[in-house]
Every structure is written in C-alpha cells, then in structure tokens.
Design a protein around this nucleic acid. Structure first.
Lengths: 342, 342
DNA sequence: GTGAAAGCGCTAACAA
DNA sequence: TTGTTAGCGCTTTCAC
C-alpha cells in the first residue's frame, strides 16, 4: 500500500534521499544535511533522531549530487599503459596512497599503448570532472587536453613527457640510466653491444637508445646499426632481434634491454644458449636477484608518488610554471652485466 | 568587461555549460543536448552550428550532472588488497577490459588487507553510486553491504568468499590446488612436507592448508604441527618459518608455499642452501620457468573477467540466486617440485 | 537551532 | 525540428 505512493521516478534502485530521512525524522531537509556532514548547530537530540532515521532507511548520501553542487569530485584519474604490467602496479598504488591521504579516490584506465584510447580515456575522466589527471602518455600530441587544463583540470605527466603542450612532468632519467648501463658493459670489456628497445614512438625508448649511443661514443666504439633494434615488446619480435644480433661472423657479446618486458624475453632466450652473453636490463624485475640479472632500476612508486604530490599541490592552488622532475636510476650489478666477452 | 558579467558562482573552473553553448549557437538548451548525445531529429545545419559553438567554447559535457539525472554512473568499483601485488594487476586489468566493453569506468581501491579500510572504501564507492562493486575481501563480515545490495548495487566477491551475506562469488579452487600440489610432492617420495601460508584470517590460506592436510591424510602421512606455519607474508616471518622447518633432527624435505609472496621468499631462502629442498608454490610467478619453480597456477585474469561478466549480467537485469564459481588451478611442473627427498 | 527556496548542469516529458 | 519546463539529490543562502 504505502509502497505504491512512492515516486515512480525514483532512481538508484529506490534509494532513500535526504528528503526521505527528513520526513521520517520529522525535521527539515537541511537539518539532515547538517547531521550527515557533521556540521555544528544541531541539538544532540535532533542529531539522534536523524541518525535513527538514517539507520532505519539505510540512507547513504549521494555523492553524485554533492559533486554537482560543490564542483569538486574528490577524485583523480590515472591513465596508464597497462595495469597488468608489473611496472605500473606499484606506480598506481603510490598514486592511490597520495590520493587517499587527500581524501580522493582514484579512477584508473589503461590505454593499451593506443593514443586514441589514451585520449578517449583522458577525456572521459575529464567529463567525470576528476579534479586532476595523471597521464602516462601513449601518444605524442596532448593538445586535446588544452581546453581541460585551461578549465582547471590539474594535469601531470609521468614516465614520458607530454607532447606539444607545457605541463608538469615526472620522469626517470632514461638517458642517464641507459648510458650508465652500457658504460658498465663497456667497462667489462665489451665492444660489440646490442640494444633492444621499445617502439620508437615511445619517448623512453628513444632516450634510452640515446643513452646507449652516448656511452658507445664516449668509449670511442662504433655502432653497427644491426646492433640496434626498436619495436614492439612482443616476445616473438624480441626473440628475433636477439637471434639476429647473436648470429653472423661478428655477433654482439653483450645486450642492453630497453625495458622490463624486453629483459624477460631476452633472459628466456639466452638461458638455453651455451655461449655466455652479458646483459643489462632497464627496470628491475622480481626475482632478478636470483637469476643474477644486472639492471638499471627505476623506482616506479617514487614516480607515482612524486607525480601525485605535484598534482595535489596544484589542486591546493599552486600556480607556478610547469615543472619537469627527473628521478635518478640505480645500477644494480648482479652478475649478468659483469660477464666478460665470450 | 564581458567577463565581469559572468556568473560569479560558476564551478569547475568556469567551464562552459550546455546553456552557454546554446546561447552562443542561438539554439535551445535541449538542442545542444541532442547534438552532444548524437540524438536524431536535428537539422544538419543546426548540428554544425552547435558543434562550432562547442568547439569554440571548449565545452565538455558534465557527466556528474548527467549521472544525477540518469541514475546510472557507468562506473564500477573494485576493492582489492594491493594493486602493487603482481597477482592483482592482471585481475584488475581484466575487470577493466570487461567494464570498458560495457562502456563503464573502473574505480580502484586498495584495502591493504585491512577490513576497516575495505569497508570504508566499499561504502565510499557506493556513495559515488557505482553501478556495481567487485570486492576482494579483507574482512570476514560484509553485512555492512546489505543495505547497498538491497538498494541495487550489484556486488560480486572474488578470490575470497563474502562473510555472513549471500552474494555472487568467484574463487580459485584453493583446496583442490593445494591438495594436488602436496600430492605431487608425496608422489615424488616426500613424507615430511612443510606448509607456509598467509594469515589464518584469510580464507584462501585456510583452504590451502585444508588441501595440504587432505593430501597428507590421503597418503596416510602424519602431520607434525611444527610443519605448519600460517601468518604474515612478511619476508622475515617466512624466513623464520623456513629456518625452523629445516632445522632439527627431522627436517622437512619439501615445502608447499601458500601464495606468490611466500614462494618468492622461500625461493630466496632456499637458494644459498646446499641440501636440496623440494618446493611447490601456489600462484605462478614471472620468470618462475627460468628458476625451475613448480607451481599451482591460478588465472588471475580469468578470475577478474569472470567476476566482471557476472557483475554486468546482474546489471543487465539477471535476478537468479547468488552463484559461486570455482575456477580450476593448474599444476605446472618445472623442477623444484620434482626433486626427490634429500 | 532550524528550515524554505534557489540552483548546480543535465535529461525526460511534453508542447509548440 | 525545436524549445520549455520540471526535477535528479544535494549544498548554499538567507530568513526565521
């Protein structure tokens, strides 16, 4: 009986609203709002009555409505490449922790390294009116974000720089890391060193290759272009590159792997071979210590944390020029990078 | 001049609204709405005018308002333990893919294995009016979700069952997997087998221990309680457990590790030892193939995908009784589990 | 200490 | 084909 009197238009599966709570408690709507938000100026007795009504009805404030009115969503968006990649898990988690400390929720999205999907995702997050956006770029043109940034969406780029716009950016020192890693191989006597990296569209791939070339040049070593391979990190592609570099009359004696996925495949590929090949990989990998893999480690969590902190400082009203932070990498020698040339 | 005439109360950093677009294009508000949503019944010429205004103003629809009106947020929440754990990355990613296929965004939150934080997060997501919720429980009492579920929030539990409420659940066969793994060790001649698992509050830990006991019992082997250790997955705690089981006059000759983190620590702990100890771990690990670690593999992505599919079927109106799905695990022999007793 | 009214930006229902 | 009105559930403002 009573039920038939309900608003037929009620959304959210017939959830009670503040109005319902107010009616039940016999108070005004605003009083319920005050109680729900812990605002002062309500008699303890009234508070109790309202709370009882809330309990009885199973009321929970609709934050969508609140957001609409207040203009801030207390949420930030994170567009990354692939949450399943062990590099991005810790990064995302670090962002989440900072967001949590600021009372904000995190909306994640994976671009799958597709620029269109990155844009689609980022704009969808903007339509949700996230307060801020952290982007690990897949594309190299971010002018599509200009209106959003102008409209007040704080935006920070991580791991790779923004394309064609000025924005806060937090990077690892890819160039320096790769240079250090390759110099390490050179120091152990290698002269023919191969570089297997990610697609040339990706900034870090290019920077790391630049680091490789710098180290080789500084050692006075020539680079045979057959020693350089950029492309997809698909195992098949990487395997082929390894095979090519290790065949012929003058095979490389050492390899530099441009990121974690490349390293994994290279390690698998080298394992069954008899002739030892030295290896340094960019990015640390779980259990790399047990496998004795020498790496250039970057701190994914620090990247995420730094970016998120910057974001929230912007949201707190910071207004200076966009900043570019570069985090140092660490050479972790574990054996594979210290092998002498075969 | 013109600026001073602006509404002083404008939120979202002075973003244009449909009203602004309508004014600029010289059309009605609803016409803008039609164009933005691609609804039919608008003259191509009008569409063009509206689109020009949208472009010029940098308008983007405010989905918060849309959500408030439509009652569906096109977003789902995922409460998991720790996004930085390599087990949850793929799971989360799989959920995201299904959500994306249904046009929904994913809001992630990590409970850090803290029941209170799980509840806080889940309820915050409900306040955002996510359409559905996927929970990897940290706690064992989910009655706090009852009002939400009754109010229409589709809810699916993954990896561990819900506590004290009926709900859709997607699990891996922890009991069967552990039993298979331990039986495998028995088949290779072991009689004294240790079990090192997660905290006893965690369902999977208990189930896997149960599998261990079942396999031992089925083989007619006694279980010395000194061979069983449940607790935190902190490396220190695990190391201590390993040390204890491998010392004394009758040390275990094989170990069963209750999850990925335990396995990693056990492997590190066993590596420097001379006496070989057989090992089977629950959960697969990257590079475990190269280290020759025998594991009981569960498919994290399949868990996430299955749960998300169930969730969206609920959102599409499915109304049958809560279902419990148990996904099979796979024994992957790689050497460590096939070692004979020392 | 409390409540009524207005309005956040959008969509549904209806009118023109 | 297009526009007007009402209202989603909340917070803000201001009056009582």
């Amino acid at each position: 009986m009573a039920d038939t009197a309900r608003r037929p238009d009620h959304r959210y599966g017939n959830r009670p609203t503040m109005k319902d709570v107010a009616a039940r408690a016999g108070v005004g709507l605003k009083t319920v709002s005050r109680v729900v938000n812990g605002e002062p100026g309500v008699t303890p007795d009234t508070v109790r009555r309202v709370q009882e009504a809330i309990e009885a009805l199973g009321f929970r404030r609709n934050d969508s409505a609140r957001v609409l009115r207040k203009g801030r969503t207390a949420s930030v968006g994170l567009v990354l490449e692939d949450l399943a990649d062990p590099f991005y898990g810790p990064l995302s988690r670090a962002v989440e922790e900072v967001a949590r400390a600021h009372g904000a929720l995190l909306i994640n999205g994976s671009s799958a390294e597709d620029p269109e999907r990155e844009q689609e995702l980022a704009l969808a997050l903007c339509a949700r009116r996230v307060d801020g956006l952290i982007v690990i770029p897949a594309g190299d043109d971010h002018r599509y974000l200009e209106p959003e940034i102008r409209a007040g969406v704080a935006t920070v780029f991580v791991d790779r720089p923004a394309g064609r716009i000025e924005a806060d950016t937090v990077l690892s020192d890819s160039f320096g890391g790769a240079r250090t890693g390759v110099a390490h191989l050179v120091a152990h006597g290698h002269r023919r060193i191969g570089f297997i990296g990610d697609r040339p569209r990706i900034h870090t791939a290019v920077e790391r290759l630049r680091g490789y070339r710098a180290a080789m040049a500084e050692a006075g070593l020539p680079v045979d272009e057959a020693w350089v391979s950029l492309g997809s990190t698909e195992p098949a592609r990487v395997r082929q590159a390894v095979a090519a570099m290790l065949s012929g009359p003058e095979p490389v004696t050492a390899l530099f792997a441009g990121n974690n996925r490349v390293t994994v495949t290279v390690v698998r590929e080298l394992a069954p071979r008899t002739r030892p090949v030295a290896l340094v990989g960019f990015d640390d990998i779980e259990l790399a210590d047990l496998l004795g893999i020498t790496v250039i480690a970057q701190d994914a969590a620090a990247l995420g944390r730094t970016a998120a902190q910057r974001l929230f400082r912007r949201l707190d009203g910071l207004h200076d020029a966009p900043e570019r932070v570069e985090l140092a990498t660490t050479l972790v020698p574990r054996g594979s990078g210290e092998l002498p040339p075969a």
